[in-house]
Computed example of a mutant assay.
Amino acid sequence: MNIPTKIIEKVALSVGAVGVASVEHIQSLWSGYGELVRLHLDGGVRPSVIVKYILLPNATSQTANHPRGWNTSRSHQRKLDSYQVEVNWYRHYANHCHAPVPKCLLVEQHDNEILLVLEDLSVAGYSQVHKSIEQHSLLACLHWLAQFHAQFMVGVGSIAPGQTADCDSHGLWQTGTYWHLATRPDELAVLEDQTLKSAAEHLDTILSQNKYQTLVHGDAKLANFCFTPEGNAVAAVDFQYVGGGCGMKDVCLFLSSVLDFSESVANNEAKVEACLDGYFSALKQALLEYHPQIDGNDVEQQWRPLYCVAWADFQRFMKGWCPDHWKINTYTESLSQEALQSLGVSINK
């Protein structure tokens, strides 16, 4: 897909540029729903901007191809909803988010077209992406998550269990993450792990009714973080699945993208404990800044045991969606069993 010339010209005009020097393709969007490009600009105050151009097919369109074969009307509708959520995020939240994210410069919607014009993070100093990272960069991502979760934390008794402030009024997912149970009935239906299948609703309830809820990024994998050249600071992108939830969902998804599963379970457990220590230390410090009335120690006491529950919830999705995926392994199975045993579920081996 190529972004229409009239759209490119509109973007240049909207940010005060004289023209566009070149268009750099970054990637096509999932299932062929659009394109992400960098526009190198002539004139104006910005040397470049990022453009996310989304052209939504109808439910029967042959262009809506899912890489793993999940071509259903439900999958299509979930994608439509996810792009609308991202639009709402950039309209109402991004420019007020203290954890580094692309600032929103322009949002337009017309019928099945969505245009997002965003700050170019590479110009802001976050020019690097990594397929693997060193420990200091890993901790930088966890600190980003901690700051994000702390800013949008909801205190005890301020809302009903399972809700997060303003998700409905500003159009975010009521429950964030792309694997949320209510949005994945097809994957649950084909799940062969009957023990995990029978516990799915219980796992979801424990996470959604914990007394501390926040906004979760919802897809906090390594590929969605941009790093400074030194690797000691990060910004995050891709907010299609941002919404309410327990912060452990983001932490487990992130660690699933950086852990070396070829190592022993014991080694990974030790690494994860150190990561959780770093995350909760940063979270408590950030809570003092954003919500000093919330007891950070109590948040850790409530959330830390939910790390394995969040992973079991993710494992429920993965084993239905792609049973041979590399994220299903000895370590993740042990975490799922730990979560199920904490619920009093008998594990059939």
Rank of each mutant, 00 (worst) to 15 (best):
I3E: 00
I8Y: 02
K10Q: 14
S14Y: 04
S14P: 04
V15M: 05
I26W: 06
L29R: 14
Y33D: 13
Y33A: 08
E35S: 06
R38H: 05
G43H: 08
P47N: 10
I50K: 11
L55T: 12
L55H: 15
T60R: 13
Q62I: 10
H66V: 14
R68F: 02
Q77I: 07
L80N: 14
E86H: 12
H92W: 15
N95I: 06
A99C: 02
A99E: 08
V101Y: 04
I114N: 01
L115F: 08
L116F: 04
D120M: 01
S122W: 12
G125W: 14
S127G: 15
V129L: 07
E134Q: 05
S137C: 02
F152Q: 14
V154R: 14
V154S: 10
V156Q: 12
G157D: 14
A160I: 13
G162A: 12
A165H: 14
C167Q: 13
D168W: 05
H170P: 01
H170K: 15
G171C: 09
Y178R: 08
A182N: 11
D186N: 11
V190M: 10
L191H: 06
Q194L: 12
A199T: 10
E201T: 06
L203Q: 07
T205E: 00
S208Y: 00
K221I: 02
A223C: 06
F227P: 00
A233R: 15
V234P: 00
A235D: 05
F239T: 04
Y241W: 08
Y241P: 00
V242C: 11
G245N: 09
M248P: 05
L255I: 14
V258W: 05
L259Y: 09
D260G: 06
E263M: 12
E263T: 14
K271L: 11
E273S: 13
L283W: 02
L283Y: 03
Q285F: 05
Q285T: 12
A286G: 02
L288A: 03
D295T: 03
N297A: 11
Q301M: 11
L306W: 08
L306E: 09
A312S: 09
F317K: 03
M318N: 04
M318V: 11
M318Y: 03
H325F: 07
K327H: 05
N329G: 06
T332R: 15
S334E: 13
L335W: 07
S336D: 00
L340S: 05
L343H: 02
V345M: 10
I347A: 06
I347Y: 09
N348T: 13
